[in-house]
């Protein structure tokens, strides 16, 4: 029943790997890479902000895959994975907005402005928080899984909008960077931290999916001592 039960230690290994890589990548980003020509040391926020953005969108994408798989197959392991991916995606999207604000203040001159990229990202964050809230209010597991899968598919439409927001509309946020617009000396810490957060995200999602599956098991077949408690109340 529990997902990924065949590799019980895999998520812990991923988390350990992620922490080591994040420390290494951040060390390179903070102390070894040169400061940017105009932004100086403040640009070092990029090494944590950009990997967070990539992985937040990746987590949402995995949630979409899980939502489709659940509606197609009706297997509750996909529901557990979806809940996990959304929660971790919300964590990363929240961090993304905070890091972005901290970077924006010294460079743009403001903490926040309702430009298309920032607005669509905030919409994404609140849409997925809404789905997590929805799951808390629905008691029937089948309805909970079905409705939140439907909501996830609809909310996911915002992900490509976030990505293209900077090209479709004029914005305060700059266009997507590419390896050609970023100096070579910045690539290594950026890539290391991207993989670091990918490993952390995967480890978190695996553990969170286990938790969701366990909760469902207990919901459907409460442990005996809790049944006794219910009996005493009745």
């Amino acid at each position: 029943m529990t997902p990924n039960h065949r590799f019980p230690r895999a998520p812990y290994a991923l988390l350990a790997l992620g922490v080591i890589l994040l420390l290494l990548g951040s060390y390179l980003g903070l102390f070894v890479a040169p400061p940017e020509h105009f932004m100086g040391d403040v640009q070092r926020i990029m090494y944590v902000h950009v990997p967070t953005a990539w992985n937040a969108l990746l987590a949402m994408t995995f949630a979409l895959v899980c939502a489709i798989a659940f509606l197609f197959r009706g297997d509750f392991r996909w529901d557990a994975r979806m809940e996990a991916a959304i929660e971790v995606g919300v964590l990363l999207a929240f961090l993304l907005c905070c890091q972005g604000a901290i970077w924006a203040k010294p460079t743009w001159g403001v903490w926040w402005d309702w430009d298309p990229r920032l607005t669509t990202t905030a919409v994404l964050l609140f849409a997925f928080i809404g789905i997590l809230a929805l799951r808390r209010f629905v008691d029937d597991p089948v309805r909970r899984a079905t409705w939140s899968a439907v909501a996830t598919i609809i909310a996911y439409a915002d992900v490509p909008i976030v990505y293209y927001s900077v090209t479709w509309w004029n914005s305060l946020h700059q266009l997507q960077s590419s390896p050609a617009t970023v100096s070579k000396s910045f690539h290594l810490p950026l890539r290391m931290n991207a993989f670091a957060i990918l490993f952390l995200m995967t480890g978190f999602i695996m553990l969170r999916a286990r938790l969701a599956s366990l909760r469902l098991e207990h919901e459907l077949a409460p442990p005996p001592h809790e049944l006794d408690a219910v009996g005493e109340l009745a």
Binding site: L15, S26, L30, H37, F38, M39, G40, D41, V42, R44, I45, V48, H49, T52, V88, L91, F94, L95, C98, Q99, I102, W103, K105, P106, T107, L200, F204, L207, R208, L211
Partner: peptide
């Protein structure tokens, strides 16, 4: 050009580290 600003850098990394750790603990 921006001079200084390490306070912003440390806040961004510190905040990220804090929330990732807090999430791991809660999990």
């Amino acid at each position: 050009t921006i001079t200084g600003g390490w306070g912003f850098v440390w806040s961004a990394y510190g905040l990220t580290a804090f929330f990732l750790t807090a999430y791991a603990v809660s999990l």
